[in-house]
Design a protein around this nucleic acid. Sequence first.
DNA 1: GTCTATAGACCGATAGAC
DNA 2: GTCTATCGGTCTATAGAC
Lengths: 208, 208
Amino acid sequence: MMLSPAPKISFKAQMLQAREDAIIVTVNRLLAEKGFDAMTVDEVAAQVGIAKASLYKHFPSKEDLAAAAMVRVMRRAQAYLAALPGSMAPLDKLRAVVRWTMELKLAGEMPSLPSQNSSLRATLIANADYMNGLIEVSDQLGAWIEAAQEQGLLNPQLPAIAVLYTLYARACDPVLEFLQMGGQHTDAEIADLVLSTCFDGLNARQAR
Amino acid sequence: MMLSPAPKISFKAQMLQAREDAIIVTVNRLLAEKGFDAMTVDEVAAQVGIAKASLYKHFPSKEDLAAAAMVRVMRRAQAYLAALPGSMAPLDKLRAVVRWTMELKLAGEMPSLPSQNSSLRATLIANADYMNGLIEVSDQLGAWIEAAQEQGLLNPQLPAIAVLYTLYARACDPVLEFLQMGGQHTDAEIADLVLSTCFDGLNARQAR
DNA sequence: GTCTATAGACCGATAGAC
DNA sequence: GTCTATCGGTCTATAGAC
């Protein structure tokens, strides 16, 4: 007998998992560079190097492919939040997270989904992994927002939910790609610029 | 003999023009509520109440339909800019324009086009009416931006082009629809809120 | 009679699903 | 690799206005 049948099963599972990861990475990239509507499942299968039928063994629909990519992004976000040093001030954490999402987008790794697609919305809402991740991230950010407001560092007149949406919106801000297209600034400069307009606004400030 | 054949021709032309306007208004609304990809030509024809073949008498392609809607928006923008009192300070003009675009979006009258669709981009760039309008509007806004920066009211460290993009981006800001979906605020409150975050940022300010 | 708009069938291509 | 639906775009025959 073999020493252990377990590794064999694990190996098979690992293969499956590896292929699924490859699919998701490809979907993530395609979603980032062309968006959901322009991405075709044939394209995904071709780029992963597997048959289209095999794709449907893993994911029952195009919407579920996109959802898997969003789950991956959400997990990365959760990992990033968890890795922030506890000593950091809430406002600095928020700035760090926004910078991270903008760097993701500038690097072409932020999937872009049409917010008006109803079937896609339904799939995302039905996806427990995605929803739990979203809620956890939102709760964490919401706590930091309220803390920063109590410290008087974030405008306390703004509803926390509006602040949260404003931060989220940086992940799909067209200003980033417009500036990138212009070619006048490095990605780091663009991130600095938009981070500045996000937190400090366009108006001239006495301080700073 | 009739008194004048001229009115007859004019009447016919008026009919044509009126129908074209009806088409463009419908396209504008559909683009605003579902976006370019989800909008179908059959849908447009049905909602206008004309045959699809008649649509193609006016516009040679779906892309041209969208371009016509964008030209209409651009003309409205030019009219709005021109109507601003000359006595108004540049910064106030900028704020007024941004508020206007946000009100347009909140009212469901701002067409939303995918920025990554190449054929649509090509059609828009080839459309002289659209491009001229865009350039004129950009020049006007650019002049106000530089004036406000010289007056020390707008952060002079920001490149004018980045400010311009940031203002344009308010016309497709997802924060608007997210807040609208929440139902906690009126459209006017939402516009005030986002206008505030745009110009003043999220940070707390001493003044204000 | 002539011209134009209409309705609706129709085609070809694409893409999702299996 | 096949099936099917959808959609952009075209075509034809009929009706009606002048």
